[in-house]
Deep mutational scan, measured.
Amino acid sequence: MSIQHFRVALIPFFAAFCLPVFAHPETLVKVKDAEDQLGARVGYIELDLNSGKILESFRPEERFPMMSTFKVLLCGAVLSRVDAGQEQLGRRIHYSQNDLVEYSPVTEKHLTDGMTVRELCSAAITMSDNTAANLLLTTIGGPKELTAFLHNMGDHVTRLDRWEPELNEAIPNDERDTTMPAAMATTLRKLLTGELLTLASRQQLIDWMEADKVAGPLLRSALPAGWFIADKSGAGERGSRGIIAALGPDGKPSRIVVIYTTGSQATMDERNRQIAEIGASLIKHW
């Protein structure tokens, strides 16, 4: 067993022997301040990774656009098919120029040779490549099948209805392509620590998230040296922004954090800054 596999296998073990965790309302004060600064709703939840206990939450059962955070769930569904012998990570998928959609920095470079399922998941999570996500959605049967996968996990809230990039439209009061912070946090925890996926697939999923290259201005910008984070960000229309993450000190994750916002007129930089400040408060009061 590799060191990384050992780390993920012992996530519940280490967490069980940690000192009790206590909620700190100071972080919620910052979440509410972010709402004021952005002029928009902000949803927040913080779960203990081992027990699933909610440590703090704000608007945990209000719907927010998922945006690209759905790509972690998508690759979880792909990995479940791999575990069941219905898919192979090494299978190569070929596609054409007509398949390319807006923001496809990886797939646009491989029109000639195609990409493997493993490479597509890596591109979808680490670079948020939209064509990679659409190609992977095709392998599982489309958005409705991802929703069905989530329902089978016990998540009857999260739903995907459309493809990239239309799913980022974020129309107010439109339930399409949305989740709730509580539902997303619980589902992410199941994917990373539950028995739904094999140990190898859980490790692969967290490795992809740990290698995320496009979430630097968010929670990662607030992390002290030595902290662990595996995350996936999302951005959408109407001032929408979000991030889902597993993080913790001492090089291992111990909490799940989900943050979503929508309806702001603020710039992307300002949305990023507010999420980073929430992260800084979380870490300060850990």
Rank of each mutant, 00 (worst) to 15 (best):
F70R: 02
V157L: 10
V21K: 06
Q265A: 14
M153W: 15
A23D: 05
D129K: 00
P249I: 06
K30F: 07
T107V: 08
R189P: 02
E169T: 13
M180D: 10
R63S: 08
E166T: 11
Q86C: 10
C121D: 00
Q86G: 11
I243T: 04
V101D: 12
H285C: 11
K284P: 03
D155S: 02
R255M: 05
K109W: 09
M180N: 13
T187R: 01
M66G: 06
P253C: 11
R159W: 06
I93G: 02
A148P: 07
F149G: 05
A215F: 03
S68K: 00
L205H: 01
T131E: 03
M209C: 06
R220C: 03
G248T: 01
Q265M: 12
D212C: 04
E46N: 10
G216H: 08
E35F: 02
N50Y: 13
R220N: 03
G226T: 12
P217G: 09
T139I: 13
Y95M: 07
V82C: 11
F13N: 03
A200M: 11
P172L: 12
V258I: 10
A235E: 03
E108P: 07
E56F: 04
T27H: 05
F70A: 10
R241I: 03
Y95K: 01
M67I: 07
I275Y: 05
V8C: 14
S264L: 04
Q88S: 13
L19V: 15
V72A: 08
N134S: 04
Y44I: 08
L47F: 06
D83C: 04
G263I: 04
A124I: 05
W163F: 15
D207R: 12
D155G: 01
A9E: 06
E119N: 08
H5D: 09
G154L: 05
R63W: 04
I140A: 07
R220H: 04
S2H: 15
L73Y: 06
Q4N: 14
C18L: 06
I206F: 13
T186Y: 13
G216C: 08
D36A: 15
K213I: 11
R271I: 11
D207V: 11
T187P: 00
I229T: 03
G263E: 06
Q274A: 13
Q4C: 11
G114T: 04
V258G: 05
V117M: 10
S51Q: 10
A133R: 00
T131Q: 03
D99H: 09
D48Y: 04
G90Q: 11
E277G: 10
V257G: 01
C121R: 00
P105T: 06
L191N: 03
Y95L: 08
M153P: 01
M66Y: 04
D250A: 13
I206T: 13
A40V: 06
F64L: 02
K232Q: 00
